[in-house]
Design a protein around this nucleic acid. Structure first.
Length: 871
RNA sequence: GGGCGCGUAGCUCAGUGGUAGAGCACACCCUUCACACGGGUGGGGUCGUAGGUUCAAACCCUACCGCGCCCA
């Protein structure tokens, strides 16, 4: 065993250990008979790179997975990447644009070849980065959402849903992204407030008997106006309902209709209706009897003006963008005298979440999933407790969204993705089938053309928990690992992914995909700002790993992960936990230097010495806290309990107490306790713990070691004894610091009237000398003159200082301590004097108050007496 | 407009109805043979405001103020 270097250098060990674990198959050892435990990783975008949100997500999953593996289970953490339709196609399009190429010029096949090349080249970036975090996932079976088998499963699901009436084709308004030129789902639309204007226009009655004022935030869409709506109860307009208006620009004759959508309070109370370009107007139009196919459309796929069916749009407006059309229309309105007024107004405006383009509601044929039918079982799964949502507060959001769910537009006008398995005959009939052959069988002998579109990426990722296990084949993996045990995801994909997984899982597997859904927050910067590239406040997890090590970063994220809160990441915390790793490292060194080796037992060794019996008990208590934290998924408590045990108990006290007395028993206990630390800390800090584990000769790696089973009990007496020793040392140190007594001066504790304490402390004389610079304690009847005095558990201990004493300082010190004790004593006395308390409070509370009162009274009394003696 | 969450020490956050804790920061002391990425000691909070329930409220209830997020 070579001596450990003085400072822990994460870089030197991380890569080595990761490679060792992976090549040794240790992330998923053969454990066919063991109880299965399963989690699937949210597949990152194949062309993505690691950001701090991944780091959190992955850490939380790895922590659980590593512990379950140590518990002896067949722990499977499924890993893979997502083809990420829009994101990937965008990246590749941008790249080939650099070479002056356009996908339309290349054609579908060539373009897809390029995307696959790109995927094969750059798809490894994110998976390499996951490895740097220490993610112990099942790389041997890495998946991709466009694997051939996965594609078959997706096609099967689509066809099956179509058969079950859960998927249909429909012409209606969709959210059209004019930049990517594809439909997107409601979830991909982000509404932001934009400073805009509110225009009031005047539309003349066709019979020239007057005009009606209408208000709009988008005047350019007037080119496709089909009506003006007023509220049926609005007295001002009642007489006009049914009359025709002459559109000021197109001259189109449009009716005045009654519809409750018109808000009498807003503007003039009359609104223009453009069913082809506004979701509300679409509904109004349908109520007014317009068929979707007849609704006027004035935009092409890029949202430039095109001629409406009736051919009434003036020639010079054709081809203009939405903005330019608006600019051109305003002077036209002015010259017609149709522009009444313009006011500033904040307008909620829809944007594509990826493109940033203003979304245009557009009438198109798309495929829809009737998710309302699937939502009900997903709601019930949570109500019945088949899925436990953590933190629970998210359940309400879950219900609310699922209860109000809208049809999901699943088709995308992209090339990269799962192509929709639908074929069209020339007569317009559509055949949905898993393959062209199958479609041909249905269609008979006629030419077929496959649907050009692909599916929403989330349609395929919704199948992740079972398709990755081999579904639709009934594999052994699937049987063992579905449902998964837990899913961990950010709340930002609760609807996009989690809810859809639940719906699809229940529909196709007949069972929920996971028993627990854990949702974590976002990682923000130290000021609480959302991180974004444009703000330049992103924290690069790889940079943090380079600087502080993966263990420190993981520990930080876990320690800061408290349920229901976002994480404000402060680099100082990472630094602090790097220091913690170094502290642990050095604890190993001191043990090593004193001949402590690897422990040879899983159970706690037999021990006689109080200090050893005490530390065994402390390990047990820490383990209990840790196990509870794991059960409750309280990552902050996991980190907290192990941190305080390692630093505050093991290093600060146990190691200090046993220094200089490394007998065989102590060596055995120290070795055991340190082993327990390594095991308990391993899920959070896998690298350093594995390295230290190996620093002592072992037959197997820590990653596959057993989670602690101490088979021992806390020894109350040993605990009390060590705690009083600790208390004496702490009191003596405080007294030294407050009285400015130099460390060079050895003090002799005079124990007043407590022979058994003298005995006990006598056996710890060496410890007292080392830790508090005290001589052997002696029994005394009263405190010698010029003594500093402390009270420990009701016993006064005096330290004669002779001329060195600063009487005033000592008096004020004692007075302060006495006052504090008296204050507590009096508070308790007051409570005990209240019959309402003694009669109505819980007996334990009363009992505790009594004993606390007694202790505080005694302490105050002793301190006052000590003060008396000083004169 | 509806929903969710947050407001506790200078900062970031824990906190079970029984009289407030941690880390960092700060101050003082210590280069004591594991560790200065360290050791020791200390100061610092009327728990957002106002009511209510209770013997007892940071914790439960109500209202208000401030902040954040989601949905419409």
């Amino acid at each position: 065993m070579s001596e450990l270097p003085k400072t822990f250098d994460p870089k030197a060990i991380e890569e080595r250990w990761y490679a060792h674990w992976e090549s040794g198959g240790l992330f998923r050892p053969e454990r066919g008979d063991a109880k299965p435990w399963t989690i699937v990783m949210p597949p990152p975008n194949v062309t993505g790179s690691l950001h701090i949100g991944h780091a959190l997500d992955i850490t939380l999953q790895d922590v659980l997975t590593r512990r379950e593996r140590m518990l002896g289970k067949d722990a499977l953490w499924v890993v893979g990447t997502d083809h990420a339709g829009i994101a990937t196609q965008m990246v590749v399009e941008r790249t080939i644009a650099g070479q002056g190429l356009k996908r339309q010029e290349l054609g579908r096949e060539k373009f897809l070849d390029i995307v696959w090349d790109w995927k094969n080249q750059s798809g490894g970036t994110i998976t390499r980065q996951l490895r740097r975090l220490g993610a112990s996932c099942d790389w041997a079976h890495e998946r991709f959402t466009m694997d051939e088998r996965y594609q078959r499963a997706v096609a099967y699901v689509f066809v099956e849903m179509h058969k079950r009436g859960l998927i249909y084709r429909d012409k209606r308004l969709v959210n059209w992204d004019p930049r990517f030129q594809t439909a997107i789902s409601d979830l991909e639309v982000e509404t932001r407030d934009v400073q805009g204007k509110f225009w009031t226009l005047s539309y003349p009655l066709a019979d020239n008997s007057g005009a009606i004022q209408v208000a709009t935030t988008r005047p350019e869409t007037m080119l496709a106006d089909m009506a003006v709506a007023v509220h049926p109860e609005d007295e001002r307009y009642r007489a006009l309902i049914g009359k025709q208006l002459k559109h000021p620009i197109t001259g189109r004759l449009i009716p005045i209709i009654a519809d409750e959508h018109a808000d009498p309070e807003l503007g003039s109370g009359a609104v223009k209706i453009t069913p082809g370009h506004d979701f509300n107007d679409y509904e109004v139009g349908k109520r007014a009897g317009f068929k979707p196919a007849d609704m006027l459309n004035m935009f092409d796929a890029e949202a430039n003006v095109v001629q409406t069916q009736d051919g009434l749009i003036p020639q010079d407006l054709l081809g203009l963008s939405r903005d330019d059309a608006r600019k051109a229309i305003i002077p036209m309105l002015e010259s017609e005298g149709a522009l009444v007024r313009v006011e500033d107004r904040v307008i909620p405006t829809p944007f594509g979440d990826r493109s940033g383009a203003v979304i245009e509601p557009w009438l198109t044929d798309q495929w829809y999933a009737d998710v309302a039918k699937l939502a009900l079982p997903a709601i019930q799964a949570v109500t019945k407790g088949d899925i436990r949502i953590v933190p629970e507060s998210w359940a309400k959001t879950w219900f609310n969204w699922l209860e109000n769910i809208q049809p999901w537009c699943v088709s995308r006008q992209l090339w990269w993705g799962h192509r929709i398995p639908a074929w069209y005959a020339e007569d317009g009939r559509v055949f949905v089938a898993e393959s062209e052959e199958e479609a041909r069988k249905q269609a008979g002998d006629q030419p077929l053309r496959q649907d050009e579109d692909v599916l929403d990426t989330w349609f395929s990722s919704a199948l992740w928990p079972f398709v990755t296990l081999g579904w639709p084949e009934e594999t052994e993996e699937l049987k063992r690992h579905y449902p998964n045990d837990v899913l961990i995801s950010g709340f930002d994909i609760l609807f996009f992914w989690d809810a859809r997984m639940a719906m699809q899982g229940i529909e196709f597997m007949g069972e929920v995909p996971w028993k627990t859904l854990y949702l974590h927050g976002l990682v923000r910067d130290a000021q609480g700002q959302k991180m974004s590239k444009s703000k330049g406040n992103t924290v690069d997890p790889l940079g943090l790993i380079d600087k502080y090590g993966a263990d420190a970063m993981r520990f930080t994220l876990a320690a800061m992960e408290s349920q229901g809160r976002d994480i404000k990441l402060d680099e100082k915390r990472v630094e602090g936990y790097r220091n913690f790793a170094t502290k642990l490292w050095n604890a190993a060194r001191v043990l090593q230097m004193n001949g402590v080796g690897a422990s040879d037992s899983i159970a706690a060794p037999a021990a006689e010495l109080p200090v050893n019996r005490w530390i065994i008990g402390e390990v047990l208590e820490t383990l209990a806290k840790l196990d509870r934290a794991f059960d409750e998924l309280r990552y902050d408590e996991m980190a907290d309990s192990i941190y305080h045990f390692v630093w505050g108990t093991f290093c600060d006290w146990y190691v200090e107490l046993i220094k200089g007395a490394f007998d065989e028993e102590t060596k055995a206990v120290a070795a055991w306790a340190f082993d327990q630390i390594l095991v308990m800390l391993h899920p959070l800090m896998p690298f350093i713990t594995e390295e230290l584990w190996s620093a002592f000769p072992r037959p197997y790696e820590l990653i596959v070691a057993n989670w602690p089973e101490p088979r021992a009990q806390v020894d109350r007496r040993a605990k009390a004894e060590i705690e009083s020793l600790v208390c004496v040392i702490a009191e003596a140190r405080t007294m030294r610091a407050e009285l400015n007594i130099p460390w060079s001066a050895t003090l002799t504790p005079h124990i007043i009237g407590n022979a058994s304490l003298v005995d006990r402390l006598g056996s710890d004389a060496a410890t007292l000398a080392r830790m508090a610079k005290l001589a052997a304690p002696m029994l005394a009847e009263t405190a010698p003159p010029n003594s500093a005095q402390v009270v420990v558990n009701g016993t006064t201990i005096a330290f004669p200082l002779g001329d060195a004493i600063d009487l005033d300082a000592e008096k004020s010190r004692l007075d302060k301590a006495a006052a504090a004790a008296e204050k507590e004593r009096d508070g308790l006395a007051q409570r005990l004097a209240n019959p309402n308390f003694t009669e109505r409070a819980k007996p334990e509370a009363v009992e505790k108050a009594r004993s606390d009162h007694e202790a505080k009274s005694a302490e105050a009394e002793r301190l006052r007496a000590a003060l008396e003696r000083l004169g």
